Structure formats: structure tokens, C-alpha cells
Amino acid sequence: MSTAAPARPPVRRRVVFIGVLALVSTLLFAVPYFGLIAPGAQWPWPVVLLGTVVFAAGWIALPVLLVVYRHSDRAARVAYPLLGVVWVLFAWTLVTDVLRGVLALAGVENPFRARLVAVLLLAIVVVLVAYGVAEARRIPRVKRVDVVLPRLDPAFDGLTVAVLADTHYGPIDRTKWSRGTVDAVNALNPDVVVHAGDLADGTPAQRGGQAAPLADVRAAHRFYVSGNHEYLGNAQAWLEHMAGLGWTSLHNQHRVLERGAARLVFAGVDDVTGASSGEQGHGADLAAALEGVRPDDAVVLLAHQPSEVGKAVRSGVDLQLSGHTHGGQIWPFHYLVRLQQPVVAGLSRHGERTALYTSRGAGFWGPPLRVFAPSEISLLTLRAG
């Protein structure tokens, strides 16, 4: 099994990363600080002092934990929840600033106006963080979708495909969650189960215990492709590890399902980041994945990022299955995701032939929160046109 560590990024890139992280951290903490500890609120000095100390500690701790201790699971268990809380604070400070302006126009004076907005902001954040943690840690709900593929042979009409994506096994041990998720998939009795990448954050040696329940997924066919996060923890090792769990790793390859004379192709490509990862022989190669496919074969393509759909359209793929977006994970982050990806979640159509299904994912990355972006196990039923 390959265990070579990814090459370290150049010094210049690390300096830029640290600078950007410091700037982002400053914005994330400064905006809610002035929303909660607004001068107009005229809070008693102990409240101002306590708030200043808390925000200053968070502002210093977040970049330190993410950079200096970036390989420490213990540091990540502190940094990621902190990042999630401050993001919710930041976003909802901007929302409540609208209310602040409305109250000012209505003639509501300080300190009552500033205190009212601060208390409301704090209450909103407490509720949303509690909701977000519960939503992130629950067994994903099942989302059922019928997908019509005009070129699908009628012999495969009704084929069910359970889609997992973005399990992100990581610093927070979710072995029990993994077992429950596998049980939920098995309860659906699907014909095919796919994992569309971002299996874990870390190496198989670190996260193999959390991924172990995937060996018990029951289906006639189980397919897996790498996501961008596998390339931070040795994607080749994960491909081999999943093969050891009984999954077919589609490393720019395809497999043909047959029912009598009817054929249905499941193909998969490496994540697009594989080409720059330093792992030899990795990178999305759709031509290689489709080599030998017949012109009249219906094709289901596993590609981690929805942005690959343009290539799928040009290659005549019938259905692309993706993840990556998490549906935004924590509102309103989906607006930023939409700048990079053509779709954030759900079924969409592209070109004359190609359908794209983008899963919101089963797990979470980083902050253990999901706010207005619930996790999912997708059960797709393929229908002949």
C-alpha cells in the first residue's frame, strides 16, 4: 500500500495562506464583536471586559490552532467548533444589522436599540448552533428521487442507486455514526451503492476504524471515487483501502452492469485536484474512464465535484453523481459555493442528454454543524425515458 506523504507546499504559498487566514479570522471576530459589544449599548464595564477577552482569545486561538497544530486531532476538536460558531455569529450579525438600521429609522434610541439587537443576535446564534450540531451528528435523512434517463434500457428501469458522499471521517470519532449510516443504507435494499468522494480527512491508518462499517454495506455493486480531501491524506491508499473493504474503486475506470443483452455503465474519475496532488498517476481522465464504452451504452459517471459536468456533457454521459458542496453546510455559505460550482444540491439538467445529481453529503467537514443544509443519503431510482 502506498503511504508516501503529499509534498509540502512552497514557502510563498504557505505565507499567503497564513496571511489570508489572519485576515479572515480578523473579519470573523471583529464584525460580531461590534455587533454584541456595540458602543451604543453602553454595557457595564465588566460585560465589555469579558466580551473583549473572549473575542480576543478566539481571534488568536483560531489561526494558531489551524496552522501551528494543523496535524493535531485534539487542536482540530477545538478549532473547528470555534470556526463554526464564529461563522454563525458573523453571518447573523450582518443580518441583525438590517434590524438595527430599521429600528434607528423608527426612532428607537440607544442604548435600548443596541442592547435589543445584541440580545436577539446572541439568542439566534445559541439556537442555530444547537440545531446545527444536532443536524450534523444525526443519521442522514433519506432523499428519494426518480431520475429519467432517455437512453436507459428498459431492462434497468427501476434500478435503485444509493448515493453516499462527503462522509469526512475526521478528528471527531464518528464510528457509531458510520455504523448507523450503513444500517440506514442497507434498510433501503439498493441495487447499487456509490460513494462520491471525500471519504475522510486523514490517512487510512488514522481513519480506517471509522470507515470500517462500509465493509458491511449490502448491495450487488459498490463503487467509490476519490474526492479532493483524499488528496490531503494519500488518495491511492484510500483507493486500496476501499478495495479491501469490498468496494470497486473507479480510478478513471468503468464497470458494466448487464441484464441479459442490456448494458449499463458505471464510470468514475479521480477528483480534478488529483493532477496537482503529487500522487503519480492521479488526475481526472474521463477519456480513460470511458475507453471501450459502446456508443449506445447509458453511462452513470461518478465525479466528486459538480463542476466536472461540462466534460460529462461533451462526452455524452447520461447521469453524473457528485457531492463536494455539502449544500453549503452552514447558511449562508452556499452563496460562496455557488461561485465555484454550477449546482449546490439536487437534480439538474445539462445539455441535451446529461442529468446531474449533487448530494448534500452525509457528513460534515470542519465545524460539526449543519445549518439549513441537512445531510442526506440519496436513493435514486433510474427510469427509462
Rank of each mutant, 00 (worst) to 15 (best):
N234T: 12
A41V: 03
L94Y: 06
V53H: 08
V20W: 09
A76D: 04
Q210G: 07
D146G: 10
V142P: 08
S226Q: 09
V192R: 09
R338H: 03
H304P: 04
G316L: 04
V31Q: 01
D270G: 08
W43Q: 04
R100K: 12
I172M: 15
A211K: 03
A373I: 07
I18L: 14
L65C: 06
P150C: 14
R151I: 02
V161A: 00
T160P: 06
V225D: 05
S178C: 11
E352C: 01
L121V: 13
A30K: 04
V54F: 03
P367C: 10
P39Y: 01
V11G: 12
Q305C: 03
L23Q: 05
H229Q: 09
W43H: 00
R13Y: 04
V48A: 13
A384M: 09
V299T: 06
M1G: 13
E376D: 04
P368A: 06
I60T: 15
E109V: 15
G281T: 03
H251D: 14
V265A: 10
L122K: 00
G158A: 04
S277Q: 00
T52E: 04
H221A: 12
A196N: 13
L214Y: 14
L199I: 05
R13D: 13
F17L: 13
E279F: 03
V98A: 13
L164N: 03
L286W: 02
F34S: 14
V182Q: 07
A41Y: 02
V193C: 01
D183W: 00
S378L: 11
D191I: 00
S178R: 14
L232A: 13
R353H: 12
H304C: 01
S277L: 09
R294N: 11
N228L: 06
V142R: 11
D166Q: 02
A373Q: 12
S25Q: 10
R12S: 08
T175L: 14
V337K: 05
L319C: 06
T381V: 12
V68K: 01
Y224F: 15
D157W: 08
L199H: 05
T93C: 12
R74P: 02
D191W: 06
